[in-house]
């Protein structure tokens, strides 16, 4: 392990950014779900918000571990970003399914709801992290 240089400060820093982004996104989803705040690109989603908070805790642990335990931060960062990406794809499928069902039932649907969830925006930010960390996973 000592042979591997530690050139991944950018990814480590990016983990910190994703931690902040997911926690804010989660918090906003919960607050919107509880009808405390409103926003054009936010849908009320309390369970989804809780999951984002969980993911931010995983990223936060990765960031914290980064100081002492390198394989540890990589695995937390990897699993966190992988889950975020999978859940974002699931969100698109869920909202896409709901939208299609509405259209087929003869009702009006808003296509923008398919991509307006906080999960998707958070996942877009996590893509570079996933790509970088997944390479590291197989080198430690």
């Amino acid at each position: 392990m000592s042979e591997t240089v530690y050139p991944h400060n950018y990814l480590y820093g990016w983990t910190g950014i994703v931690t902040v982004v997911t926690s804010i996104a989660g918090l906003l989803s919960i607050l919107r779900g509880a009808e405390i705040v409103n926003g054009a690109y936010l849908l009320p989603d309390i369970p989804g918000g809780c999951i984002l908070i969980l993911l931010s805790a995983i990223f936060g642990t990765a960031y914290y571990k980064g100081r002492t335990d390198r394989p540890g931060w990589i695995s937390f960062s990897y699993i966190g970003s992988l889950m975020l990406l999978i859940f974002a794809v699931c969100t698109v499928l869920i909202n896409g399914g709901n939208y299609l069902a509405l259209i087929m039932g003869g009702e009006d649907g808003d296509a923008s709801t398919i991509i307006s969830l906080t999960f998707i925006w958070a996942a877009i930010i996590a893509i570079p992290l996933y790509l970088g960390v997944s390479k590291l996973m197989y080198k430690c």
Binding site: P47, I51, L54, A57, I58, T61, P71, G72, I74, S75, F76, Y78, I79, G80, M83, I86, F87, C90, L93, I94, N95, G96, G97, N98, A101, M137, C140
Partner: peptide, 30 residues
């Protein structure tokens, strides 16, 4: 390394519940 997180003392059960929640959302919506 993956097991460090997936079977984590505190994160293990919430991760499992999150996966199940998404699975049921998909079951209904998709």
């Amino acid at each position: 390394l993956i097991d460090q997180v997936i079977t984590h003392r505190y994160f293990g059960i919430p991760i499992f519940l999150s996966c199940m929640w998404f699975a049921f959302q998909l079951t209904f919506s998709a």
